[in-house]
Design a binder for these strands. Structure first.
Length: 300
DNA sequence: TGCTTGGAAGTAATTACCAG
DNA sequence: CTGGTAATTACTTCCAAGCA
């Protein structure tokens, strides 16, 4: 293939920007060039590929099927180029440079204090840029290319992401200390029957996972009580409003007066903590190394 | 080395078009 | 009409290659 038939990196950058931002003007801005410069490159690319990449409606711009496919490829290629540049700069060392890392709120405060020091020790060249959001938002950001790696519960709906399980995080029963189950060495899911179970707000994947356990076992949700965070949830339980399922990962940090925590007898319900990343990511091997570091930092 | 040159990619200004 | 948007036009800038 003659060189002149090959799209330039610059064209791919512009293509990806327009596909993402749905606007020539905003794409130009984000690429720090003028709008005509970007227009010209897109036109040139369309001529080169012999296909229309965007529908220019006066009001908005939409990728054609060919454009969407090309933009997806472009993003892959740009990412590979980033990896190439980073590894060249880092003399081939993986896990050097910046990693944009998204974590859900029911994991971040409980795992990161242990895991991050380990990451710093084992991968001193790696700079983590942390972002805490709920699952749906994290997946959006990852698909759009704004995040490189996600740490979340793999039971959630994660679209077409690639997954790397780290460890199981068993659920514990949390109850007020005067509760009938509070003194037990262990409980079974069937003990939930008839219990008022408090859950997190919509949007927390933990809510769905706990609800799943309740459905199996006839516990009923107290719909009027939804907490926006685990610490709040725990305070409500300690105050006698009901019981809840608590991830073992979070339990030690959430211990409080008036709260009893009881493990489930085997097989205990659990969530799977793991990494998720775009299928197209060229950094799978790095993520596997990082996964090892996180597993070691995990409880048990 | 230093000068010339041609092409690529940039900008500013302008045009053309549409929705509200 | 106005405001927002992409395309067009007419330049300018930059840089690598060719050559004395």
């Amino acid at each position: 293939m003659p060189l002149s038939m090959r799209p330039t990196v610059r064209q791919l950058e512009y293509l990806a920007a327009v596909a993402e931002l749905r606007s020539f003007r905003r794409a130009a801005e984000s690429c720090h060039v003028s709008q005509p410069a970007l227009s010209a490159q897109i036109q040139q690319l369309e001529r080169l590929l012999g296909a229309r990449l965007f529908e220019r409606d006066r009001r908005r711009v939409l990728p054609t099927p060919a454009g969407a496919a090309a933009a997806a490829r472009a993003r892959e290629i740009l990412e590979r180029l980033d990896v190439l540049a980073a590894s060249a700069r880092g003399l081939g060392r993986p896990l050097a440079g910046t990693l944009r890392f998204g974590v859900i709120p029911t994991i971040a405060p409980y795992l990161l204090p242990k895991a991050l020091p380990a990451v710093r020790r084992r991968h001193p060249e790696l700079r983590l840029q942390l972002r805490e959001e709920q699952t749906d938002r994290l997946v959006e950001l990852a698909q759009a290319g704004s995040l490189d790696l996600l740490l979340l519960a793999l039971e959630a709906e994660l679209g077409s992401m690639d997954l790397l399980p780290l460890f199981h995080d068993p659920f514990l029963l949390a109850a007020p200390s005067e509760h009938r189950l509070a003194g037990r060495r262990s409980v079974r899911e069937s003990d939930l029957e008839g219990e008022a179970v408090l859950l997190l707000d919509d949007g927390h994947c933990l809510r769905h996972q706990a609800l799943e356990v309740c459905r199996r076992r006839g516990g009923h949700e107290l719909a009027d009580f939804r907490a926006s965070s685990l610490p709040t949830l725990v305070q409500m339980v300690a105050g006698g409003a009901g019981v809840t399922l608590l991830p073992a990962l979070a339990a030690p940090a959430l211990a409080t007066r008036g709260l009893a925590v009881v493990p489930f007898a085997r097989p205990a319900p659990y969530r799977t903590i793991g990494f998720a990343f775009r299928r197209s990511s060229a950094r799978r091997e790095e993520f596997q190394q990082l996964a090892e570091t996180f597993r070691r930092a995990a409880p048990d």
